[in-house]
Write a protein that binds this DNA or RNA. Structure first.
Length: 515
DNA sequence: GTAGGGTTAG
């Protein structure tokens, strides 16, 4: 058979598995009168791409002669499955290793969290290419070792767009948005992924305004958003509770015929719920053919946030009946549902069940959630006990919950402790001083109030006025604390008083406050 | 045959 024919066969076989028809590829491969190493390699890659690593193994064992690409394909296949030990065995066994072999192994170790091992191998690569550098830099970023990522990036001889994008993500993860933006602006030809990384950075840091601005800029430059872009935009709509923006984004998805994959559906569900439309969230959930763990976690949270704790718990059981295993986040969702409903004892039972029955190791977030629930219920001493006994260092969020609760339930002693810790963790944060001073004021300790005010002046801490906004029609109305500049301010205040009164008089007052 | 962006909690 002429070589030309083998090439055509190979092309057809590859075409089939690239479109998911692996069985057809296998059939044709079997019919091939003469095969070359490329034919075999194509079958190996095809099996791996279609998540059939064991069948790939069979082809690999059977083939009469292998080249470096055959070995590399297998190593990469094992790495994709997270089976790094098996990848390493092949790596050691193979006769000739090239840059790609090394790079795949570096990636494998980094993805497993064994960053030092990855770095060791990286240093051994004789002629590193830009992919090798990128994989290692990204490995540091993914494993929260940003300083090392930075150091390596600075050493990288020619910085590729992919490496720059990995660094942008790293800066965003560290909350260093200025640096991320600077790097982003230095890029000559930004591609979609780079835009997405920057937009996602703003979205994840809660800066919806910048995310929207960048999104508009991106559209203006003629870039076409994809699912990843829109998910970040939906996240931003959620964080400012803009149902209107969220609906527009949803409409955009439909109009552009973007097939909503499960992640996009999950983001839509979350957006609707956080913007107040639990019904739409539920409808989307029910339309999913096979909701994944994130979908279930999202819908459980949705009901929890809307005060339907029992429904959230029902959904938890329903999820288990569907054969899905709850993870640590699922328990956070259920815990927060209990918390919103003020159910302290249930929360503790759920926590115990997570640890004992489901054997899930609690993370700092679980303790934070428990502390928050106890705080809201006014059980400050118990909350403090958890803080003292938990195997994690309490962060600013936890001390903040305690401080707020000390204000609501007036506990000077614990309030002072929480404030002290917060000042250590976030110096210059005015809220801490204000809250402590309010606690002293409520307790009638006026000398202390003066002391805190003096301290603020001394340390140069400025009070930032609180603000909120309302969207009506096409306008956003911004209100700052103590600001009376709105032309209709007297009507607004009157209406707020009326609503407040209505809430107090309502039979559901308790529910509203707790929910 | 190798690399970068996305969904769930608080």
């Amino acid at each position: 058979m002429p070589v030309k024919d083998i090439v055509s066969w190979n092309a057809i076989i590859t075409g089939y598995w690239q479109n998911g028809f692996i069985e057809e590829s296998k059939r044709l491969f079997g019919l091939m009168p003469v095969k070359n190493v490329v034919s075999w390699n194509s079958m190996i890659t095809g099996c791996i791409e279609n998540e059939r690593i064991d069948e790939a193994c069979e082809y690999f064992m059977e083939m009469p002669e292998r080249n470096t690409a055959s070995w590399n394909a297998m190593i990469s296949g094992f790495v994709k499955e997270g089976r790094v030990d098996e990848a390493l065995r092949l790596f050691e066994e193979m006769p000739n290793r090239n840059v790609i072999s090394y790079t795949v192994m570096v990636d494998g170790y980094a993805r497993k969290g064994e960053v030092d091992r990855a770095r060791y191998l990286f240093d051994w690569i004789p002629r590193k290419n830009e992919v090798s550098w990128t994989v290692m830099i990204n490995g540091y970023v993914e494993n929260e070792r940003f300083d090392e990522a930075r150091a390596l990036f600075d050493m990288m001889p020619e910085k590729s767009l992919v490496a720059i994008t990995a660094m942008i993500t790293g800066f965003c993860k560290e909350g260093m948005m200025e640096d991320a933006k600077r790097l982003f602006e230095e890029i000559h030809h930004r591609d979609l992924v780079a835009w997405n990384a920057m937009i996602a950075g703003y979205a994840q840091n809660g800066n919806a305004e910048e995310a929207f601005k960048l999104y508009l800029q991106m559209l203006k430059m003629g870039m076409k958003p994809d699912r990843a872009t829109l998910i970040s935009i939906l996240t931003s709509c959620s964080s400012v509770a803009s149902l209107k923006g969220g609906r527009q984004t949803h409409a955009f998805v439909i109009k552009k015929g973007l097939e909503p994959d499960i992640s996009l559906c999950n983001a839509l569900m979350s957006m609707y719920s956080k913007c107040g439309d639990i019904h739409e969230s539920k409808v989307l959930f029910e339309q999913l053919h096979s909701p994944d763990l994130v979908s279930w976690n999202t819908i459980i949270t949705a009901f929890g946030q809307h005060g339907h704790c029992e429904k959230a718990v029902d959904l938890f059981h329903e999820m288990c009946e569907h054969g899905l295993k709850p993870d640590g986040v699922t328990f956070l969702c259920v815990l927060s549902a209990c918390g919103h409903a003020g159910k302290v004892n249930e929360s503790i039972n759920w926590y115990d069940s997570m640890v004992n029955e489901y054997q899930i190791a609690p993370r700092a977030e679980h303790f934070a959630c428990l502390v928050d629930i106890l705080c809201r219920a006014g059980q400050l001493v118990k909350a403090h006990t958890i803080i003292k006994e938990m195997p994690f260092e309490a962060d600013a969020g936890i001390w903040g919950s305690l401080l707020t609760a000390c204000g609501a339930y007036l506990n000077v002693e614990l309030g002072e402790l929480a404030a002290m810790k917060l000042v250590e963790l976030e110096p210059g944060h005015s809220g801490t001083y204000i809250m402590l001073s309010n606690i002293y004021a409520a307790a009638g300790m006026w000398r202390e109030v003066g002391r805190v005010r003096g301290l603020m002046k001394e340390q140069g801490v400025k009070k930032e006025p609180g603000c909120s906004w309302v969207e009506t029609g096409n306008r956003v109305h911004l209100f700052k604390a103590g600001d009376v500049s709105h032309p209709e301010i007297s009507e607004i205040v009157l209406e707020l008083r009326r609503i407040g009164l209505q809430m107090k008089m309502s039979d559901d007052y308790e529910d509203i406050v707790l929910g």
